[in-house]
Simulated assay, not measured.
Amino acid sequence: MTRFALWLPIFDELADPVAVANLAAEAEEVGWDGIFVWDHLRWREPVKAVADPWITLAAVAAATERVRIGPMVTPLARRRPTKLARETATLDLLSGGRLTLGVGIGSDRFGTEFSATGEHVEDKVRAAQLDESLAILTTAWSGETVQHDGEHYKVDGMRFLPRPVQENGIPIWAAGFPGNLRPLRRAAKYDGFFPVNLEHPEQLAEALAKLTELRAEAGATRPYDIAFAPEPGDDPKPYVEAGATWILTAHDPATVSVDEIRGVLRDGPPSV
């Protein structure tokens, strides 16, 4: 079964968490399955206002009862994994077990948010930070004691309670370029893949075939999601046929508005 979600750049008019929460409640009422938000500190001009994704998602969680929520995606390299362990577990509790964590290494090219704040700009360094963070998070969500002494992070004998509502922990969807093997290997370890910069559905089918192979090698048996956001106006059906289990709406971050999102959500999820 394919599910459908709004994917919102929470900029300018959508930098108001009350407005986003109201849109989320309307979307749930007409049958959308998820509300996902971008996670950025800033974006290039003409965008001026940017909301915090976690506060916004908390407002969405409080305003809804059914839709799945989450950041899509959060660059873990600029977040402390111990703090994120607390935030994600708390948000999962608040939402009644509806949180999905989209993760990636992020990019400096759209808002220079890494270089402007003194963060690492090297992809390899941020990828290593991402992998360490995921190891810490998954152990923290289990309720077991976290003992981690890595290159980038240290956690010395801490437990993170309460645990998330979801029995197996919070689902993780890892973003990446389909032709790059390392993101595919990372995504195969977790619960889903969010491909970026796809040019045609065949790329998605190829990525899914490789993920299926990698997951079989690892003995993975849990359900797996492939989330994709076609360009506005593109037919999502070929991507569903290629294996997408979630279709997300795409919006221009420079022009997105409350009226635009309300118009999209009131049309309801597309038929495929």
Rank of each mutant, 00 (worst) to 15 (best):
G268F: 04
G118L: 10
V258T: 11
L99M: 13
G176Q: 04
T245P: 00
A5K: 08
A59Q: 10
Y239D: 06
A63M: 06
L14N: 01
A77I: 01
Y224D: 06
H152G: 11
R78A: 06
A220R: 12
I172T: 01
N180S: 15
G179Y: 10
F177A: 12
P162C: 09
N197I: 12
V155Q: 11
P164M: 09
G143Q: 07
F193H: 08
T74G: 08
R44H: 11
P9V: 07
R44C: 11
V165M: 12
A24R: 04
F11R: 03
R222K: 15
R222E: 14
L130W: 00
A49T: 10
I69N: 03
Y153G: 04
F114K: 03
R266M: 15
M1D: 09
E26P: 09
Y190H: 06
M1N: 14
D108Y: 06
E199N: 14
T221S: 13
A242M: 01
W141M: 09
N168H: 13
G111K: 10
H148A: 08
T112M: 15
P178A: 06
A61H: 01
L14F: 00
T82L: 14
W38I: 05
G176K: 01
T90V: 10
R126C: 07
P9G: 02
K124D: 12
P9F: 08
G268I: 05
G219Q: 07
P253Y: 01
V20A: 09
M1Q: 10
F36C: 04
L94V: 09
P171H: 07
A175R: 00
A128M: 03
H251D: 01
T64M: 08
Y153P: 07
A135D: 13
L84K: 07
T212Q: 15
V256H: 04
P46G: 11
E217N: 11
I261Y: 10
L76N: 00
E45C: 13
A209T: 13
A127S: 11
V30N: 06
A61G: 03
T112W: 12
E113G: 03
V272C: 15
V47Q: 05
E167W: 12
P71C: 08
S257D: 14
G169T: 03
P164D: 03
P201R: 02
A127F: 07
G157S: 13
R44F: 12
R266Q: 14
P171M: 06
E260V: 11
G157A: 13
I55P: 03
D131G: 07
A174Y: 04
E260C: 08
T139S: 15
E28A: 05
P171A: 06
F228A: 04
G96K: 06
T64L: 14
W38E: 03
E132S: 04
F114H: 03
S142R: 11
Q203R: 08
L204M: 05
P171K: 07
P236Y: 02
A244H: 00
A77S: 12
G150N: 13
A25H: 09
E151H: 15
